[in-house]
Design a protein around this nucleic acid. Sequence first.
DNA 1: CAGTGGATGCTCT
DNA 2: GAGCATCCACTGT
Length: 197
Amino acid sequence: MIRPAPLTKAFFDRSVHAVAPDLIGATLMVDGIGGTIVEVEAYHHTDPAAHSYGGRTPRNAVMFGPPGYAYVYRSYGIHWCLNFVCEEEGSASAVLIRALEPTAGLKEMQRRRGIDEVQLLCSGPGRLCQALGITKAHDGMALDRSPFELRARAGEPAIAVGRRIGITKAAEEPWRYGLAGSRFLSRPFRSQGPSIR
DNA sequence: CAGTGGATGCTCT
DNA sequence: GAGCATCCACTGT
């Protein structure tokens, strides 16, 4: 059996618009718990919706560092959100991880989330961070080392494209990517949507 | 289902 | 003091 290749820093050393769709179908684990990435959003440094758009601050500092690191921030005072920092001409871009299909550590995820429904364990950026135990402590950690474990997808899945969720600036940009037809998305994509691959 | 509003904390102006 | 890259509970069909 062929084991999928680990995602190295070189994988993230590309445009965020290339990395984001390539993450669909990849495996994300934290301390052995996680699943398949089924939904992400790209935030380019020239994008008004990106946290880095207004320049470097203490919160977004990791985005201005090298690619292949986790950027974690607090959302609405309650939730954590996980991003993967990418390279774009030495600037500050990142991919927001929005949903996983849980495959490993279901019982622990259910305990952390306080629910049993597998469908709702990781279907949303806040939910998946709670399920995987991601907090501010993971901000700035390398993605190619423990506790993170990332593996490339096998095959070429059909990828749905649509507008990003929950933002007001540049809301019309089609920079949300999902595994077409997945039951684990945070929200469905419009119809079959425009699809790539 | 769709729509609404509250919880809650931190960052930046 | 405003504004969130969210989630959940609740309402009304």
